[in-house]
């Protein structure tokens, strides 16, 4: 599926509005509360039968607070019409680094940088950020940590980590509470 970027307008109340880049019919919009970050898909725009993924442009992240016409599955929009409203205060603590540690018996582990609830996927109906057995590179998102009602991304990045690694095991469950420093993933150099 080809992709198209949303246009962006920052409203006065701090909300970021994601606008349609051209006339079309929008569908498959993310639900309220869904977390969006730059590069992620935020719905589909159908133009003359062709489906185009609507991507969140760089510099935008936050939680979806509302969307155009929730009552209908297919919503026709104009150029510049608001498709999604996103609250950027829903996401703070820009980048959190997973702490790597080499322990003889554990191999290489990624630890939670702070305590909170761990999620493997951006929203319940979306695929996981990383599959077991897949290869991750520096900067990849491994999961989300919900801390005091705000979401933080758990990145694969840190001292002593190889540039590429294979994810061998997730040591906690999706939605589990984790403590600061608790091992979350076990990886091996790729």
């Amino acid at each position: 599926m080809s992709a198209l970027e949303f246009a962006v307008r920052r409203a006065e109340d701090g909300i970021v509005e994601l606008l349609s880049p051209r006339p079309g019919v929008v569908r498959d919009l993310p639900k309220e509360g869904h977390l969006l970050a730059s590069g992620m898909g935020g719905g589909t725009l159908v133009v003359l039968g062709r489906r185009l993924e609507l991507r969140v442009p760089s510099g935008v992240s936050g939680r979806v607070v509302s969307a155009v016409d929730r009552e209908r599955a297919l919503v026709p929009v104009s150029f510049g019409e608001v498709v999604l409203r996103v609250d950027p205060s829903g996401v703070t603590g820009e980048v959190q680094e997973g702490r790597a540690e080499r322990a003889a018996e554990e191999g290489l582990v990624i630890r939670a940088p702070m305590g909170g609830r761990f999620y493997m996927r951006p929203s319940p109906d979306k695929p996981v950020f990383v599959e077991i057995g897949s290869v991750v590179e520096t900067g990849a998102t491994l999961g989300l940590l919900e801390v005091m009602k705000t979401f933080h991304r758990l990145h694969y990045r840190g001292e002593g980590l190889p540039a590429r690694a294979v994810v061998r095991e997730c040591l906690v469950g999706d939605g589990d509470d984790v403590e600061r420093g608790q091992p979350v993933f076990r990886v091996e150099p790729a």
Partner: peptide, 27 residues
């Protein structure tokens, strides 16, 4: 009734056949 096609520049509004036909269909 109107559909906004694009910015003021004609190449992205009045000269974009795909936007015009899509706008006609969706209305």
């Amino acid at each position: 009734e109107a559909v906004v096609l694009g910015p003021s520049r004609a190449s992205e509004s009045y000269l974009d056949a795909e936007r015009l036909v899509q706008a006609a269909k969706q209305t």
